[in-house]
Design a protein around this nucleic acid. Structure first.
Length: 336
RNA sequence: GCCAAGGUGGCGGAGUGGGCAAUCGCAUCAGACUGUAAAUCUGACGCCCGAAAGGGCUACCCAGGUUCGAAUCCUGGCCUUGGCA
């Protein structure tokens, strides 16, 4: 039976180390579900758990599902940390855009491979959308972005965007909640989908939009903690990353031609340094902002995961929580 | 001691006679989320009642005063900062 263990939770709570511990115990391999760790060369800021000498190992049996996704012949591969394989890092160059659709395509290849080798898959990370998309599927992933359209819509106000959408797809427009109606990015994507759908219908291509769910026996575990504890951890972690050489990492990225406008550089821990590098702002300012933003991010993650009723929560400040997790996983693992 | 500027909500900072419970930013709380998701976006945020509409109360350093009406004007006090002695 294919078994998939999912470990979610806010940043800095210790998901990866739990994943590694469980992987050892239950013969598993870890896959990162993190929209930023996919970028090659962004290690410190995104918190890839790499030990000093861990090297990327290419698995040449595995191919990218689409040659366009592959870059520089790097291929698919993994890092080994404490004897456990970690996949999902270094999938793209930081100059490239990346999105859920690509993530699920690539990761499904990896998952199939791990299952084929009879091992447990442990998916862990803080990007809720990626996890949900991978497991439950997304109907409209097959509709690619349309850069020209996006550009032409980018000047419009939210009201104009909403009116445009209401004109093309009134049902979709009416179904949007009050927050999304004011969210330009969402409105643009909705228009993109609406247009695609309507053209498709006209050409009688009618692509069957459907969710493709992952076929596996899945257990969801969530790690949580009181906010003070979390924020404290975040603070320490940010400082560690500063000491660990985030500035140098950014310098190297910039040196390789990565720009502040690139999607990858919108990541926490990177964008906060823009004014430091560009206008000589104090690094204390960057660090303070980084911590602040990281806290907000953790809260957003909690909001996202809270609504998924499949998740069994463990508070990492409770004594013996780890044993409880292991117990739960074991019970599930040996069940059929 | 004199001169100047100023004291506003948890913080920063607008407002300089009525539209002010007070723009905005931060923080905080709650939430959304289906190819940018570490992104993007929404709501609440003096106190009390109310599901809401709405109503009531207390407020812009303190004390007085002018005025139909003051965060805004006047007087006195206290405090802060800068300059001169």
């Amino acid at each position: 039976m294919k078994k998939l263990l999912v470990i979610v939770g806010p940043t800095a709570i210790g998901k990866t180390s739990l994943a590694i511990a469980l992987a050892k115990k239950f013969n598993g391999e870890v896959i990162s579900a993190d929209s930023r760790q996919v970028y090659k060369g962004m290690d410190i800021g995104t918190g890839k758990d790499l030990s000093r000498n861990s090297k990327f190992q290419r698995e040449s049996r595995l191919l990218f599902p689409n040659s366009k996704l592959e870059f520089r012949n790097l291929g698919l591969g993994f890092y080994t940390v404490s004897g456990v394989r970690i996949w999902g890092y270094d999938l793209v160059e930081p100059k490239k855009d990346f999105s859920v659709a690509q993530y699920i395509k690539i990761v499904r290849v990896i998952i199939d491979d791990i299952f084929a080798r009879g091992k447990l898959v442990i998916l862990t990370g803080g990007t809720g959308l990626y996890i949900e998309a991978l497991i439950d599927g997304i109907e409209t992933v097959s509709i690619p972005p349309n850069p020209k359209l996006r550009k032409s819509l980018s000047e419009k106000t939210r009201d104009e965007l909403f009116d445009t959408l209401a004109h093309i797809d009134p049902i979709k427009a009416a179904s949007l909640n009050s927050s999304d109606r004011k969210n330009p990015r969402r409105l643009i994507r909705a228009i993109e989908i609406a247009l695609q759908n309507s053209t498709a219908k006209r050409v009688i291509l009618t692509p069957k939009l459907q969710k493709s769910k992952l076929d596996a026996n899945t257990l969801f575990i969530g790690l949580t903690a009181p906010k003070e504890f979390l924020f404290n951890n975040i603070e320490k972690r940010v400082e560690e990353r500063v000491r660990g050489g985030i500035k140098k990492e950014i310098e190297e990225l910039l040196g390789k031609g990565v720009s502040w406008k690139d999607q990858s550089m919108s990541s926490l821990g990177y964008r906060e340094w823009k004014s430091y590098f560009e206008s000589n702002a104090a690094d204390a300012e960057a660090i303070e902002n980084w911590k602040k933003e990281e806290n907000k991010y953790a809260k957003r993650q909690l909001t996202w995961f809270k609504r998924d009723k499949r998740i069994g929560w463990f508070d990492v400040t409770d004594a013996g929580w780890q044993r409880n997790v292991e117990f739960m996983v074991e019970k599930w693992y040996i069940s059929r």
